[in-house]
Write a protein that binds this DNA or RNA. Structure first.
Length: 660
RNA sequence: GCUGACGUAGCUCAAUUGGCAGAGCACCUGAUUUGUAAUCAGGCGGUUACCGGUUCGAUUCCGGUCGUCAGCUCCA
């Protein structure tokens, strides 16, 4: 750090209001906070020195900006939750002294702790741990920080093999080793922590699951307990409530109740799309096709390939585990494979022809079905499947075209998300440790990508070292209507593939040149994208996407013909309209239409039949019906479908009220 | 793949210590012709995922298979 402080054994802390405090090196943070105010000390959770959060028991070593963190500060919650993890471990150790402790960090929505135990935890264990935690909390054990030598640490954790393994990482480093004690429990831990266990008031143990030690499938499986904690009771309750709400809009639940798709044990990881679901799927695919008509060339390529292709692309070496291999009955070998990606086929096709520098960029796009042999345990609804289709594009272009092309693709992608009302955030990922290509090439690639990114004026997050091994990338995360982030689109520069496939174009100088490849995906996979849309809209799709756009309901038999005529008119205009003239009460039919989330219901009775009007019920607005001329309704409807308007506004589906 | 939980009618769920498997909705048949979230009555429907074991007797206990779900380093 700055050498000036070394001369003195005093450090200078600058408070947010500009005042400074000079204290001896090694002064505890809490003493500084206490000197500012007793009440502040009681409210403080931790402090930050130049942005680094440390707890109140930490001896201060450096001068810097000194900020007191109270529970108002978002960083304080992570501290509380990390302490929650220790309290959990304290309780588990009391009830299961045989448990060896692994890691226990705070995570986005809470915290977890990993244990190595003979007998896995049961839900009953969880309840017992939660009760025991309450005792630990009542005992208000202070979190005591100590800094120890490696030797000392090894003695302390002699009974904990996992901690000893972690300690081995400190060998030969000068990192400070700290341990925290709360009552009977000691943990190797960097901190920071709240002052004592009594600070944890509102928490809940959620689930238990297996987790490999250090995430390595070759290592032993530990038992992980997930939990969450908040400062305030209502925050915890809101969080738990939100979890319940999220379950209601789960695409697997809605997909079943709305009859969109089904899975069968005979085809794990593959979806059957119902007639309705197929309508939805095709509507989205048509939309993508329409947008891509101008600037892209769609091609269809085989699903099954000889392994020679995968050897050339490098998949055979790196990706074979995830490919479905097919027995070639002539050779008796599994040397054919279903394609898991479209890139190699696109490269083969590009490479089959001579290309002039004038025709670049060339953009091939393919919607073919892809197969990836995901681990059985990884399959989940439509978000993780073995068979899916992408709106997968590969652009072949000259290096000098990168900036323009990236700008073009970004606008294309962002415009797509806008149509669905999905908020996108951008991430720019640069060269990773493991990579191919010269630094000069990476400089150029990153420079071009960054320039294109910045020309859009959109904010982005820099992810250093997170790029693909063959090139930097821009990832598009979208946030859905309940604030969850999904990684969807990507723009990846690739200098590797053109080499492997010996791709070229003829330049102005009549000599062959290497093109650059850009991988572009917008929806990710259609399957997953539709899952996201189902959850985003809670099944209440805007009218252009709705599988059934209008339902016409005659009040009595006398108006059936009239209603049928209206349905026919709508159908003739390309509207997905149905007639519900069943022998049921109006209430019954309206209720069913609402539950099936049909955007518009047109009720037709005597008045409407005579006056050529419809009594329009808009999804989710209850009894506020509107009487309008059929022509006016049709005109508005066609306009909204054509413009892909986000109407009717998705109404957050409250749980269907219990029987009256 | 691994750890744990789960698998009962088309759907959502019941079934006391192992003792003939039940409800609501959906579906079918009648009656009812309805003005904005469930009209009434009757009926059909299950090899309790599958295979094996223990038992006089298994939805229930045990083992295996298949599937579903929660997870599988957001650095002590």
């Amino acid at each position: 750090m700055s050498g000036s402080a070394a001369a003195s054994d005093q450090i200078v802390l600058t408070l947010p209001d500009g005042n400074t405090r000079e204290v001896p090196v090694g002064t505890l943070a809490r003493d500084v906070v206490g000197s500012i105010g007793e009440r502040l000390l009681r409210a403080s959770v931790a402090v930050a020195i130049d942005g680094e959060v440390v707890d109140l028991m930490t001896p201060l070593r450096h001068s810097g900006a000194f900020v007191v963190i109270t529970d108002k500060d978002p960083r304080a919650l992570a501290v509380l939750r990390h302490s929650g993890a220790h309290i959990l471990a304290t309780a588990v150790r009391r009830l299961r002294p045989d448990a060896h402790i692994g890691f226990g960090p705070a995570i986005d929505d809470g915290f977890y702790y990993d244990f190595e135990v003979e007998r896995p935890f049961t839900p009953e264990d969880l309840a017992a741990f939660e009760a025991e935690m309450k005792k630990v909390i009542q005992e208000k054990y202070p979190f005591v920080r100590e800094e120890v030598s490696l030797e000392e640490a090894r003695v302390r954790f002699a009974g904990d093999p996992l901690k000893l393994e972690r300690l081995a990482d400190f060998e030969g480093t000068d990192e400070v080793i700290s341990v925290y004690t709360d009552g009977p429990f000691v943990d190797l831990c960097r901190g920071p922590h709240v002052p004592d266990t009594g600070w944890l008031k509102h928490f809940k143990l959620l689930t238990t699951a297996g987790a490999y030690w250090r995430g390595d499938v070759k290592r032993q499986m530990l038992q992980r307990i997930y939990a969450t904690a908040f400062w305030k009771k209502d925050e915890l309750e809101t969080h738990l409530h939100n979890l319940e709400e999220a379950k209601k809009r789960d695409h697997r639940v809605l997909g079943k109740s709305l009859g969109l798709f089904q899975m069968f044990p005979v085809a794990p990881g593959g979806a059957f799309w119902t007639p309705k679901g197929t309508t939805l799927y095709n509507t989205i695919e048509s939309f993508v096709r329409e947008r891509q008509q101008e600037a892209f060339q769609e091609i269809k390529t085989p699903l099954l390939y000889n392994k020679k292709l995968w050897e050339q692309s490098g998949h055979w070496g790196k990706y074979k585990e995830n490919m479905f291999l097919v027995l070639d009955s002539e050779t008796g070998e599994h040397d054919m494979s279903l394609k898991p990606m479209n890139c190699p086929s696109h490269h083969v096709y590009y490479g089959s022809q001579k290309h002039s520098y004038r025709e670049l960029p060339v953009r091939y796009v393919t919607f073919d079905v892809l197969h990836r042999n995901e681990l059985s345990g990884a399959l989940s609804g439509l978000t993780r499947v073995r068979q899916f289709a992408q709106d997968d594009c590969h652009v072949y272009l000259r290096e000098d075209q990168i900036a323009t092309e990236v700008k073009f693709l970004m606008d294309f992608i962002l415009g797509y998300y806008d149509t669905f009302g999905l908020q996108a955030t951008l991430k720019f990922a640069t060269r990773p440790e493991q990579r191919i290509g010269s630094d000069e090439l990476w400089d150029r690639a990153e420079g071009a990508l960054r320039a294109a990114l910045e020309s859009t004026g959109r904010p982005y997050e820099l992810k250093e070292g997170d790029g693909a091994f063959y090139g930097p990338k821009i990832d598009f995360d979208v946030t859905d209507s309940i604030g969850r982030a999904w990684q969807l689109g990507t723009i990846q520069l690739d200098y590797n593939a053109p080499e492997r496939f010996d791709l070229s174009y003829t330049g102005e100088d009549n000599a062959p040149h290497r093109p650059v490849v850009i991988h572009r995906a917008v929806s990710g996979s259609f399957e997953r994208f539709i899952a996201i849309l189902i959850e985003h809209f809670a099944g209440a799709f805007p009218v252009w996407l709705a599988t059934e756009q209008v339902r016409v309901i005659p009040i009595a038999i006398d108006y059936n013909d009239h209603a049928q005529a209206f349905v026919d008119r709508l159908k003739g205009l390309g509207i997905r309209a149905t007639l519900d003239a069943r022998n049921e009460t109006l209430n019954y039919r309206v209720r069913e239409g609402e539950m099936e989330k049909v955007p518009y219901m047109c009720v037709i009775g005597r008045r409407e039949a005579e006056e050529h009007t419809v009594a329009l019920r808009v999804r989710g607005t209850g009894k506020k019906q509107e009487i309008l001329a059929q022509d006016a309704f049709v005109e508005q409807l066609l306009h909204d479908v054509k413009t892909r308007a986000l109407v009717p506004m998705p109404v957050v589906a409250e749980s269907t009220e219990e029987g009256a």
